[in-house]
């Protein structure tokens, strides 16, 4: 669902239109479930977070002054509900990723420099949705330290803006930008390794 459809739905919900309730619940429940599943790692936790978030959303709907902001507003509530669930991992150190670990190796043979990465130009658009690729992507995201994972989920998967993401996570916009870049580089590296080793996906470079 596009953001403007979502905004329309929020307006219908506020106006008390009968069909809006179930559509809103179905749409956001799946979204929150997905976010919390990738954040908490447990299906049961993710289901609970979705329910708790939606309950809070309805209880405080009167505070949603701008329906345009419904998506970031729901995710702000979801992020807090998700934090409450993470008691177990709360003491896990939040690891920092450095840029240098993602610099690709260079090859200077034959007079001109090349980088040692997979041949991404051979990755056709339709293959980008292939299910094995999806698994690799989901795993790469789950393996990110959580302060990076939250940023890439909100920015790239939920397509929230830098400012909205900063507000949801209580970060500055600069920190969001830095973390997003490193998260993308880490995910890129995982996909790259997969593309290089799996000859069924991409024939190796000649």
């Amino acid at each position: 669902m596009e953001r403007d459809t979502e905004v329309k739905l929020a307006r219908q919900l506020i106006a008390g239109e009968p069909e809006a309730f179930d559509r809103f619940v179905e749409h956001f429940r799946a979204k929150i479930f997905h976010y919390s599943w990738l954040m908490c790692g447990q299906r049961e936790d993710a289901e609970e977070v979705a329910q708790e978030t939606l309950l809070k959303v309805f209880e405080s709907f009167a505070h949603l002054r701008e329906p345009e902001r419904v998506r970031p507003w729901v995710f702000r509530i979801a992020k807090n509900a998700c934090l409450m669930k993470r008691r177990k991992s709360v003491f896990a150190p939040s690891q920092e990723l450095s840029l240098d670990e993602f610099l690709p190796a260079m090859n200077h043979e034959g007079g001109h420099a090349t980088i040692q990465i997979a041949d991404w130009s051979r990755l056709p658009d339709r293959q980008m949705l292939q299910s094995e690729m999806k698994e690799v992507l989901a795993r790469a995201i789950r393996e990110l330290p959580e302060n990076y994972r939250a940023v890439i989920l909100l920015r790239d998967m939920e397509e929230l803006s830098t400012l909205e993401t900063a507000q949801i996570l209580d970060l500055t916009e600069d920190v969001v930008k830095t973390r997003l870049h490193r998260a993308r580089l880490a995910v890129r590296q995982e996909l790259d390794e997969y593309l290089r080793t799996d000859s069924r996906v991409l024939p190796s470079r000649t």
Binding site: F33, A113, I117, W120, S121, M128, L129, L137, E159
Partner: peptide, 25 residues
């Protein structure tokens, strides 16, 4: 080399945007 790397990052972002989870509640 930089353009090749940039392209791989662009495709990574594109993949993330298009990703729809298999797991549903």
């Amino acid at each position: 080399p930089c353009i090749e790397f940039a392209e791989s990052l662009r495709k990574t972002v594109e993949l993330c945007r298009r990703y729809r989870p298999r797991e549903l509640p």
